[in-house]
């Protein structure tokens, strides 16, 4: 009986007894969920365009963030005064680097592998991962670095408000993260749904051959999509880096995108967002209210349990396309 009480009654009593903690947990879940969604978005963009699960998305986050911080340091060494000017210049140059990476990936990796089975392209992204790890360590070193959040005019400090005898604290950087991610998702959705290039991308996703037959350049689309994934990676790197530090351990965070993708489907931008939020809020609530029953530290696997539960009812994910194969 005691265990039934602890599982089914006590957590809800806690929620009612301390609503400030419930709101705080929901907020933390929302922020984490938005950031997971951002990582998942990087995977979805590339999967939609090429059917490839980009294993390198995690290291692209690290590489993009290190590039930003590295260029900023370089600019300071060259005499550009510290502050917003150097930071935004570094941001612009980082975007150029991410475009260069997208171009190089298309030329060196994707183009020679056209018409190869998807698994070959998937394995190629493994190669890209290890190349970026080695290249990143060679250029930037293994030392963790401080994200230039202040220089980019991202806010610091917290907003606190009282609630039911307690308080809810929201970090300004987290509020900024939620806003930036929302704008970014909106812009990407508009780009891919309403523009000519977006329609071309969806055509490529449906069929490479059909897209080629109506004059869509596969290579151009791939560069655009990999660049978009690079921009997403840079944004993710800035936001996660500001919460912790910029180091190679950030690539592990990308693992969080897997349950989000299982849940939301590999081809859906709204799926990535909704999946991210369900996973983010679900794991925080689960860890906070039910975690202590299992010795805490359950969120590293809880996300997968949540995703698997959804899969029982929707194997294609919440927003994934239902694939019917006739035999």
């Amino acid at each position: 009986m005691d265990i039934l009480y602890k599982v089914f009654i006590d957590p809800f009593m806690q929620m009612g007894g301390a609503p400030d903690l419930l709101v705080q947990t929901l907020w933390e879940g929302l922020v984490a969920g938005m950031l997971y969604a951002l990582i998942a978005l990087g995977f979805v963009l590339i999967f939609k365009a090429s059917g490839v699960f980009n294993f390198a998305q995690g290291i692209m986050v690290v590489f993009a963030a290190l590039t930003l911080v590295g260029i900023y340091d370089l600019l300071r060494q060259w005499g550009v005064p510290s502050g917003w000017l150097a930071a935004y210049l570094a941001l612009a140059l980082s975007l150029v680097v991410m475009f260069g990476l997208a171009f190089a990936v298309e030329r060196v990796m994707l183009r020679p592998l056209v018409n190869q089975p998807d698994i070959i392209l998937f394995m190629a992204t493994f190669g890209l991962t290890y190349f970026l790890i080695g290249f990143g360590e060679f250029v930037f070193g293994g030392n963790p670095k401080r994200m230039i959040a202040g220089e980019l005019n991202l806010p610091s400090g917290a907003v606190e408000f009282k609630m039911a005898g307690g308080f809810v604290s929201m970090q300004k950087i987290d509020i900024a993260a939620v806003l930036i991610v929302s704008v970014m998702v909106g812009a990407l959705s508009f780009f891919f749904q309403r523009t000519r290039i977006g329609r071309a991308l969806r055509a490529v996703a449906d069929s490479h051959k059909a897209a080629l037959s109506v004059g869509i350049s596969l290579n151009q689309i791939w560069v655009i999509v990999w660049f978009a994934a690079g921009v997403v990676a840079l944004t993710t790197g800035i936001m996660w880096g500001a919460r912790s530090e910029v180091s190679f351990s950030l690539q592990i965070i990308a693992l969080k995108a897997l349950p989000v993708l299982i849940l939301g489907g590999f081809t859906s931008i709204p799926g990535a967002i909704v999946g991210g939020l369900i996973i983010g809020v679900g794991e925080k609530i689960g860890e906070f209210y039910w975690g202590p029953l299992l010795g805490s530290g359950i969120e590293s696997w809880l996300a997968y349990v949540i995703a698997l539960l959804f899969l029982l009812y929707r194997p294609q994910g919440l927003f994934g396309e239902k694939i019917i194969e006739r035999i």
């Binding site: 301390a18 903690l21 705080q24 947990t25 933390e28 922020v31 984490a32 996660w240 919460r243 912790s244 530090e245 351990s249 950030l250 592990i252 965070i253 693992l255 969080k256 794991e283 925080k284 860890e287 906070f288 975690g291 202590p292 010795g295 805490s296 530290g297 969120e299 590293s300």
Partner: peptide, 22 residues
């Protein structure tokens, strides 16, 4: 009170610190 942090969650500890707050 034990607050384990998995290697995969090193940069994602907000849940554990919410537990600390409680």
């Amino acid at each position: 009170k034990l607050y384990p942090v998995a290697a995969t969650e090193m940069q994602n500890q907000s849940s554990q610190w919410l537990n600390v707050r409680r």
